[in-house]
Structures are given as structure tokens and as C-alpha cells.
Design a protein around this nucleic acid. Structure first.
Lengths: 221, 221
DNA sequence: ACCTGAACACCGTTCAAGT
DNA sequence: ACCTGAACACCGTTCAAGT
């Protein structure tokens, strides 16, 4: 949990804004208007201060984003009941992480910043690694297994978020549409066959299906 | 392949810059200095023109990026020999896409923009979908299988690129390090066990391993 | 110690005018 | 048809000064 750095005993001027206020306001802006709206200047204005006051509580914008993700994860990640079967344990832990991340699209920018979101997420990583070990993998294989799940999960969220955002914008002629418009049935028969259903098919939520397949494949060694 | 829009017969002023020149220069900037260096203004300066001249050949920066990816894919994607076994065919096609994308880190920004990179990539998607169908999946399942591979592949590249970029910057105290510094062995015993090897383990290239696991899991239905 | 003002060095994009 | 200049509406961050 983030807290103001050094709580000294009134050495100088009393602070007018706190790290918590910054984080709180930033989260509100994020929820209201999306990632693009969160700028240091707007944040300062919303707080009723100047851009530079922020830099006294936060090193820079990147640190602010990590702090935000950390705070969000701590508040919303709830440890689920874990099934006894190790393979199911891996799946439940991964789904819990996915669920929380998928719910806040602004996360995407920070997602790639690090593979470990926050201290709160460690417990979930532990369950995944431990579940794989119980499946009979070596510790190294288990870590690689976790990485594979992380790639898949992060990729799903990033691609899906981008797709949703694109749909929200009014720009009509999506690149994909123009590509799909004139498929050569001789060159790519399967794609030609599903062309008109592609959008609907890819809009379906198949995260759990893919996750199960991945975990099955990883556990069967 | 991108080409200048309308080659009319000298209706007005002759063009001083072409779409191809824009793309060529943009690719050079990308190779030299990374994504951050590619701005409309810098591009124009490099060409020896003004920012606004670009907008005459390209709708906006997003379109430019899609054009760049398209051009890059067309030049570098080479169709590989496909094995007879369908499952191997899926893997070979996916690895071909992954190899090309992994080689150019600037791609990341555009990656999420659409799941279909360019016309050139369609053949590879076809092989993956068709391979899954030959494995006994329905067409719908095959498309979902392709999507799972795409999530995994895009995620791997994005996370890995971000990690590499982070390593390049001199900023020392990476978030992960501070999180790993004081792991509680009672809370997260497995992670505590691998803590000092985590960096080395996650630096390993395990894309193909994970891909094989995923494809195995998807094909076994 | 904490905050402010002014400034630096940038962005993408639009508009009106030039050739 | 194609290009230019000037401007709009922004960015993140630093520096020097104020209280």
C-alpha cells in the first residue's frame, strides 16, 4: 500500500496535497475518461494545484502509473477458494488475475512495464508456480509455465482492449475490414469461409478456453 | 504494397515527396532511434519538408504506422516449407509470424491496433486455422485457436520488448527487484526459492515451448 | 519542506493561404 | 494538386525562486 514517504515531525511547511490524494484523483480521472485523459497537468488542475507540486510526491508519470496499478490491485484482488487439484488451482489463480485486469482497461499501458504487478499479486503467482510443481514440473518449468500464462493473459487483455477502444471511435474503415473485403477463396479458403462471421467469432470471450488448453498442454509433459 | 493514391496525368503541381519516400524514411528513423523518435515533425524534417506535407500523403500518424507494418511484413514474411502433420503446420506458421514480429521491436505500438497485420499475413493465419481443422476442430474452434495463439504471441512480444527496453534505460531500481527483495518464504515459498534465479529464468526464450503446449492443448479436444 | 511561475523542448493536427 | 506558415491546443519535466 502506498503511503507518504517520510512522516517527519513538522520540519517545514505543512503539505497541502498527499500521495493518496494524487492517486485517488488519478483513479477518478482514469475511470471517467480513460488513459489518454490522465496527464500530469490535468491531474494537477483537478487537485487544484500546479503540475510541479505532483513531482514532489511522485518521481514521474511512470511511477505514478505503477502506484496506481498497485493501489488498484491491492483493493480489488481477492484470494479465491483454491481447488485441491493442482491444474485447477493454476486456472483459478490465473482467472482471478485476468478478471481484475480485464475490468480496468487503463491498465494496458502499465501492463508491459513489469510482469509482476504488485506485492498483492505475488500470492497468485505463487499458486500458479506451485500448482505446476504439483503437476510434476520442475521448478524451472513451472516458472516458464507461469510466464506462458502471463503472455497469454496480458496479450488477451491488450488485444481486446485495443479492439474495444477501436470500436468506440467512430472511424469507420477498420483496417481488418478492408483486408477481409476481398479474400481470395483459392489462396485462403478457410478465411473466406468464415469472413462474414470473423467479427462475431473474435468478439466472443474465449479466455478461459484458451487458458485451459494452455495449462493442459503445459501440465502434460 | 503501398503506393501513391491517384496517379493522374499532371493535373496540378508535381509532387515533391511520395508515400514511398515517407515510408522509407520512417523505417530508417524507426531502425535508428526506436518508436519514440518517430514523430511527424521529425519525419518531415528528415525528408526536408514540413509536417503538413505528410498529411497530404497519409491520413494521420496511425495510418502511417499501419502502412509501415504492412510494408515491413510484405518485405520480410517468407512462406516456410509446411510439414504434413497439421499440428506441426500450426506451429511452423505461428513461429514464422513470431520471428518476423520479434525482430522489430517498434511493432508493439501497432500490434494491438489490429489482429490482422496485413494481407501478407493472411496466408499464415489460413495455415493455422486450416491446421486446426485438420486436427479435428470445428471451424469456429479453429478460429478461436488462432486467436489464442495470437494472444500468446502478441503478449510475448509486448512483454519481452518492454523488458528489453527497460533494461536499456539506466533507471536502476526496477519495480520487480524491490518486490522480490523481501519475499516472505512462508507466504510465497516457491517464489522465495527461485527469487535469485527469476531474472535469468524469465530472460530465457521459451516462446516455442509455450506455443507447443498451447497447440497441444488446443488440438486435444 | 513544500509549493509556484515561468520556461524548455517538444507533440499531432487544422486552417488559410500560396504556387 | 501539392506544399507552406502560422497557429491551436496540448504534453512531461526542469530550474529558480518564493513561503
Amino acid at each position: 500500500m502506498p503511503q507518504t514517504p517520510a512522516p517527519r515531525k513538522t520540519p517545514g511547511r505543512p503539505p497541502r496535497i498527499s500521495r493518496d490524494e494524487i492517486i485517488g484523483t488519478a483513479l477518478r480521472i482514469l475511470d471517467e475518461g480513460g488513459v489518454d485523459r490522465l496527464t500530469m497537468r490535468r491531474l494537477a488542475a483537478e487537485i487544484g494545484s500546479t503540475p510541479m507540486a505532483l513531482y514532489h510526491h511522485v518521481r514521474n508519470k511512470d511511477e505514478l502509473l505503477v502506484l496506481l496499478l498497485d493501489d488498484y490491485a491491492t483493493r480489488t484482488l481477492r484470494r479465491p477458494e483454491l481447488p485441491a487439484q493442482p491444474r485447477e488451482r493454476v486456472i483459478v489463480a490465473a482467472e482471478a488475475i485476468h478478471e481484475v485486469l480485464a475490468a480496468c482497461p487503463w491498465i494496458v499501458t502499465v501492463l508491459t512495464a513489469d510482469d509482476l504487478l504488485s506485492k498483492t499479486a505475488l500470492w497468485f503467482v505463487e499458486q500458479i508456480v506451485d500448482g505446476f510443481v504439483d503437476c510434476g514440473l520442475t521448478l524451472d518449468q513451472a516458472v516458464h509455465g507461469y510466464r506462458a500464462i502471463w503472455y497469454y493473459t496480458a496479450g488477451e487483455i491488450m488485444v481486446r482492449t485495443a479492439a474495444t477502444r477501436r470500436r468506440a471511435e467512430d472511424d469507420r474503415p477498420i483496417h481488418r475490414e478492408s483486408v477481409f473485403a476481398d479474400l481470395d477463396p483459392d489462396e485462403v479458403p478457410r478465411l473466406a469461409q468464415v469472413a462474414d462471421r470473423w467479427e462475431a467469432l473474435t468478439a466472443q470471450d474465449t479466455y478461459s478456453d484458451g487458458l485451459r488448453a494452455l495449462v493442459d498442454g503445459l501440465a502434460t509433459r
